[in-house]
């Protein structure tokens, strides 16, 4: 149900531009439903996931 992909921002620039990557790491969830910048604690990531899946 969950897939986590590390994406080389330099190699896949089109995708990086699509998601406005300006700082790394940036975690883009479900093709832009949410963007989390920085290496955030697990609880922050969970809160973000809860927010977008609650819609």
């Amino acid at each position: 149900m969950v897939q986590a992909e590390m994406v080389g921002a330099m190699e896949f620039q089109e995708l990086s531009m699509k998601h406005n990557v300006s700082g790394v790491p940036q975690t883009t969830i479900n093709d832009g439903a949410a963007n989390v910048v920085g290496a955030v604690p697990e609880s922050n990531m969970l809160a973000e996931l809860k927010r977008i899946t609650a819609k």
Binding site: V2, Q3, G8, L15, S16, P25, T28, N30, T53
Partner: peptide, 16 residues
């Protein structure tokens, strides 16, 4: 939370 997911979640972590 993850166990209860009903829709797939894709996390893409952009790195350099």
């Amino acid at each position: 939370f993850l166990k209860a997911l009903t829709e797939p979640v894709l996390l893409q972590v952009f790195v350099t």
